[in-house]
Design a protein around this nucleic acid. Structure first.
Lengths: 230, 230
DNA sequence: AATCTCATTTTGTGATCACATTTTCGTAAA
DNA sequence: TTTACGAAAATGTGATCACAAAATGAGATT
């Protein structure tokens, strides 16, 4: 049972072993380090994380609660497989969740926050030019997250991240086989709409960004990617 | 540390201790058995469930992943407190999620399934007449769940249940202080729209059902309820 | 070459224990 | 009466172990 390699992650002092295991596994899955169908073992990950089974098992259980992993009937632990239909569900759910979240964030965003969001958008461009796909992906997530979390009472972010986690594995495949993942983006359009406090325009820009970005893969493209990875 | 009492729940043979603990705690929170701010302990629940700390801890960790519980900095485990603003966020999120889910289920529903949904709606009325609020609540959830899960590739149900879980505690308070929780409902309207395969009408009926049901509490009503429970 | 059998190994599960931190509560001082 | 203090109890954390079930792989059979 080969354990997938885990990208390193900073461990703040005082963080429990369990929290660290959770954060690191979560990050790994979200940026596409695990392939769909990959199976992991508690002991294997415990060794990779230099800890014991107990905290790792807790982290794995949490990850199953948010759809990032699956405990099968045979008690095997696997990264869920994607089908074209499931992919389409995830994209339409992303659109529904994120346009809702964006809409409800508009009223809370300050000028300063909008500037920060604009700066994050610039950093996405930088990472793309440098060819660092994972860094670009993380920056892109930060772009979206910073908008949505401007709403202080927001509840939706964990749900959005659950969807991101479920898209992670196919995203990892896409990054291996597609050179340009961000050819088009609607970020400037969203930022302009934020400045105008135009809720509808913000929601539309976010929806279009998703639809034309990762959502741009049609069912055949997804099927092709899955075939390549098999 | 007094441990809240847990409604009994059937334990299918072969179910692991952990799964049983998770299912039972989840059910208890979803039907309002726990008050906001209640704190629980691992050992206390382990005793109540006649098991040991390990599987209970895993169940609690999962429940935090879906917003049903919270591990505080002090390492205390509590049922999250509700604020009027948070309540309003939860309702608007419910509407966004469930009208999306309903819309995407319409095409998959068979006549037979629609009949079953209609029968569930009747059973809600029965439970209300019998005065069993918890049974009515569970039947109401079944009504919604049966619609949304007709879509076989559906991803959204776990997210919807996460929101239900977060509303559970305030619902428990409401059931104690409000005699009629389901005076109006739009279920017949939704069922008729399902029969006509009218996606927009289904989504509207579900949204109205939520808005006029639990969503009908305004901020003052929520604040009053919270005060009563404190 | 493919399939079956069975012993070995691997793996998830759940109980237990030691440890450090936090909470609780009785007592004393202000 | 209120506040401060310190010992005792309670609690979360993480490692370890025994156990049962599942997976693996070598060797025999067809």
């Amino acid at each position: 049972m080969k354990t997938p390699s885990l990208p390193l992650l900073d461990r703040p002092e005082g963080m429990t072993t369990h929290d660290y295991a959770f954060a690191r596994l979560r990050q790994a899955i979200m940026v596409g380090s695990f392939r769909p169908g990959t199976s992991v073992t508690i002991r294997g990950l415990a060794e990779a994380l230099e800890s014991s089974p107990t905290p790792v098992r807790e982290a794995l259980r949490q990850l199953t609660s948010i759809g990032a992993l699956q405990f099968l009937e045979n008690r095997r632990i696997v990264v869920p497989r994607i089908t074209p239909a499931r992919f389409e569900e995830l994209i339409s759910l992303r659109i529904a969740l994120e346009s809702h979240a964006a809409r409800r964030a508009v009223a809370h965003l300050t000028e300063r926050q909008i500037e920060r969001i604009s700066a994050i958008d610039d950093s996405i461009e930088d990472e793309i030019l440098r060819g660092d796909q994972v860094a670009a992906l993380i920056a892109n997530q930060a772009f979206h997250r910073t908008i949505y979390t401007a709403n202080p009472d927001q509840i939706v972010m964990p749900l959005i991240e659950s969807v991101w986690l479920q898209l992670g594995p196919i995203l990892g495949i896409a990054m291996e086989h597609v050179s340009e993942l961000y050819v088009v983006d609607r970020h400037r359009e969203a930022i302009d709409a934020l400045r105008r406090r135009d809720e509808d325009a913000v929601a539309d820009a976010i929806a279009a960004d998703i639809r034309e970005g990762i959502g741009g893969f049609d069912q055949q493209a997804v099927a092709r990617l899955l075939k390549l990875a098999a």
